[in-house]
Amino acid sequence: MKVAQLGNKAHIHKNIIEACKKGNESARYQLYQLYAKAMYNVSYRMMNNREEAEDMLQDAFTQAFMKLDSFRYDSSFGSWLKRIVVNTCINAMNKRKVELTYCEEVYSGNVFEEVEAEPRYTVQLVNRAMEQLPEGSRMVFSLYLMEGYDHGEIAQIMGITESTSKSQYMRAKRKVAELLKGFTED
């Protein structure tokens, strides 16, 4: 997305960002306060653990502040920072040598077909279901559904094939639907 397309979004908080670039600690704290909650949510969805999510958040902000001079307002600061958070989480997962469980069958159709048209799932239930997914599936599910990455981008980020990303997503989607159905029957 070009700066012209972004309009004022690319320049939101520009004064604070420029003050941060000059080493102003108060501005850094202010920028942290503006973005910490949203970036923590991204990190938590990927790491599935509060302590690890907090660690990833701190690492990501440390990296962002160190690389702030490279931020050129080509995108919004939030998008730039979210990419750092996602990459920080991916790198941490890779250090643990995440083994993806490959799905041999490709599911067709809508796996939520059995779900009634009336929404009956809360955010808490969906989060509870996501927490029970295997790590690799949860990351693909989160990146695709929650963060808006496409399968090509996910494949590149995670070092997997696009078809693996798609099958992991379908498997995660099926598992979440199954878990949600079980939660509502309890």
Rank of each mutant, 00 (worst) to 15 (best):
L6W: 06
Q168Y: 08
S70M: 02
T164K: 06
A92W: 00
T62R: 06
I160C: 08
L125M: 14
T164I: 01
T62F: 00
G152C: 12
Y107W: 09
Q124T: 15
E185V: 15
T88W: 00
A155Y: 05
S137V: 01
K97E: 12
T161Y: 12
N41W: 09
L145P: 03
Y121K: 15
Q33V: 10
M170Y: 07
L57D: 04
D150T: 14
S137W: 11
V98N: 04
N91F: 01
Q33W: 04
L143Q: 10
G23N: 11
N110V: 15
S75K: 07
G78C: 05
G78H: 12
G136H: 02
F61A: 03
G109K: 13
Y29E: 02
L68C: 02
E99F: 08
E52P: 02
I157G: 01
D59T: 07
S165L: 08
Y40W: 14
S142D: 05
R96H: 03
A27D: 04
R120G: 13
G159R: 02
I90Q: 00
L125F: 12
P119V: 14
V3F: 02
I17V: 10
G109Q: 07
P134S: 08
R128S: 11
A92H: 03
M1T: 09
G23P: 11
K173F: 11
M46C: 07
I160W: 09
K21P: 01
N48V: 12
S137Q: 05
Y35W: 11
L179P: 05
A60S: 06
A36F: 09
E114K: 14
V98E: 06
A117H: 01
D150P: 01
V126L: 15
A129P: 03
A155R: 06
L68W: 00
G78S: 11
K14S: 12
N110T: 14
E104S: 11
A27F: 04
M1I: 13
E18A: 05
N94D: 11
A4C: 07
C89N: 04
M139Q: 09
I16C: 07
Y40P: 07
N91C: 09
H151Q: 14
E178M: 10
Q168C: 09
Q33A: 13
C89W: 05
M170W: 05
M146W: 07
A92Y: 09
E116P: 07
E51G: 07
V3K: 06
A117Q: 10
K37P: 07
E135S: 12
D186L: 14
S26A: 05
A36I: 05
V86C: 08
A19T: 03
S108E: 10
Y35D: 06
W80M: 00
A129D: 04
T88P: 03
K67G: 00
N24T: 05
P119E: 14
A36E: 13
R72K: 00
Q30I: 00
R83L: 03
M130R: 07
S142T: 12
S165W: 03
F183W: 08
K175Q: 13
D150A: 01
V126E: 15
L6I: 10
D55L: 07
G109N: 14
S75C: 01
A92M: 12
C20W: 00
A36N: 14
M39C: 13
A155S: 06
Y121S: 15
L68Q: 02
T101R: 08
L68K: 03
I154M: 10
Y144D: 02
E99M: 08
A155C: 11
K166L: 15
C20S: 01
